[in-house]
C-alpha cells in the first residue's frame, strides 16, 4: 500500500467507519512507515481537538441550509431523469404536433376550469392560510429542529408580512444559534423590504455571537441601501471578537471603497 492510499482509510477511521480489514491494512502500513504514523497521529489529534468546540462556537453559518438545498437539488436532478423519461415517451418531436397537443391541453384546461365550482379560489386561499399557520407554528415550536424546519419552510414560500415578522423574531430572540443563522439566511431573499433591513440592523445591535454578527453584516451589506452606520456601530464595541472586527472592516471597505473612513478603534 502506498502512503497516499492511507488517506481514505484514515478519514474513515476518524469517522469511526473503518472496516476491520481496512484497519489491518492501515496498521500494516503504519508499522513500516514512520512518516504516515506521524501524519495519522497529527490528524487524529486535530480531529479530536475539533471535538472540543461546543456547538455554539462552530461556524455552521449557512451550511445547514446550503446542505439541505444541495441535497434537494441532487434529489431533484435524480427525479428529473425519471420524469424526463416519461415525458419524452409521449411528447411529440415535431413542432406542429407539439403545438397541436399544447393547444388541445390548453382547451381541456379551460373547460375543466369552467366546470369547477367558483369557490375553489377561496378554498385554495384557505388552504394557503392553513399551511402558513402551520409554518408559523413551527417557527414558534419548542424544539430547535422543528424551528429550523419552520425556517426552511419559510425560505420556500412567498413572504407574507406575518412570516417575515416570525423570522425576524427568530433572528432576535431564538435561543438556538443555528435557528438564528438560518432565519437570517431565509430573510436574505427579502432585503428589498425596508422592514427586513431595519429588523436585521436592530438584531445586529444586540447579538453577541461572532458568527451571527458576521452573517448579519453579510446580509445587511448585500441590501440595496446597506445600513452602514449600524454595521460601523458594532466596531465601537469593546468586547468585539478580533476576527469579526477584521472581517467587518474588510466588508465595510468593500462596500464603500472610495470613502473608506477612519474606522474607530475600540
Amino acid at each position: 500500500m502506498t502512503c497516499e492510499e492511507t488517506t481514505p482509510l484514515l478519514m474513515d477511521r476518524l469517522q469511526g467507519d473503518l472496516s476491520p480489514a481496512g484497519e489491518e491494512q492501515l496498521a500494516a502500513h503504519l508499522a513500516t512507515c514512520p512518516a504516515c504514523r506521524a501524519e495519522v497521529e497529527a490528524m487524529t489529534e486535530t480531529w479530536n481537538s475539533l471535538g472540543s468546540l461546543d456547538d455554539e462556537h462552530v461556524p455552521h453559518e449557512r451550511l445547514r441550509a446550503r446542505f439541505h438545498a444541495g441535497l434537494a437539488a441532487y434529489e431533484a436532478r435524480e427525479s428529473r431523469h425519471w420524469t424526463e423519461r416519461v415525458f419524452a415517451s409521449w411528447w411529440p418531436q415535431q413542432p406542429v404536433l407539439q403545438m397541436g397537443l399544447a393547444a388541445a391541453l390548453a382547451l381541456v384546461g379551460v373547460l375543466v376550469g369552467q366546470q369547477l365550482p367558483s369557490s375553489s379560489d377561496n378554498e385554495i386561499a384557505e388552504l394557503r392560510s392553513e399551511v402558513r399557520a402551520v409554518g408559523i407554528a413551527l417557527l414558534d415550536h419548542q424544539s430547535a429542529s422543528e424551528r429550523l424546519l419552520g425556517v426552511k419552510w419559510a425560505q420556500g414560500t412567498a413572504q407574507a408580512p406575518e412570516v417575515i415578522d416570525a423570522l425576524l423574531e427568530r433572528v432576535q430572540y431564538d435561543t438556538n444559534l443555528s435557528v438564528r443563522l438560518a432565519a437570517v439566511d431565509a430573510l436574505r431573499a427579502d432585503l428589498d423590504n425596508p422592514n427586513v433591513v431595519a429588523g436585521l440592523a436592530m438584531a445586529l445591535e444586540r447579538q453577541e455571537s461572532p458568527l451571527l454578527q458576521v452573517a448579519l453584516t453579510d446580509a445587511l451589506l448585500a441590501a440595496d441601501q446597506p445600513p452602514i452606520d449600524a454595521v460601523r456601530a458594532v466596531l465601537g464595541r469593546t468586547e468585539l471578537d478580533p476576527t469579526v472586527r477584521e472581517y467587518l472592516q474588510m466588508a465595510l471597505s468593500e462596500v464603500e471603497p472610495e470613502t473608506a473612513p477612519a474606522i474607530p478603534e475600540a
Binding site: 469517522q15 480531529w47 468546540l53 456547538d55 462552530v58 445547514r64 446542505f67 441535497l71 441532487y74
Partner: peptide, 20 residues
C-alpha cells in the same frame, strides 16, 4: 471549512457530502 464542518460537526457521511 464547509467540508470539515459538515463531516465533523454535522455528522454527515462522506457519501452524503459527495452527493451534495
Amino acid at each position: 471549512r464547509e467540508v470539515l464542518v459538515l463531516s465533523r460537526y454535522e455528522y454527515k457521511s462522506y457519501d452524503e457530502i459527495a452527493r451534495v
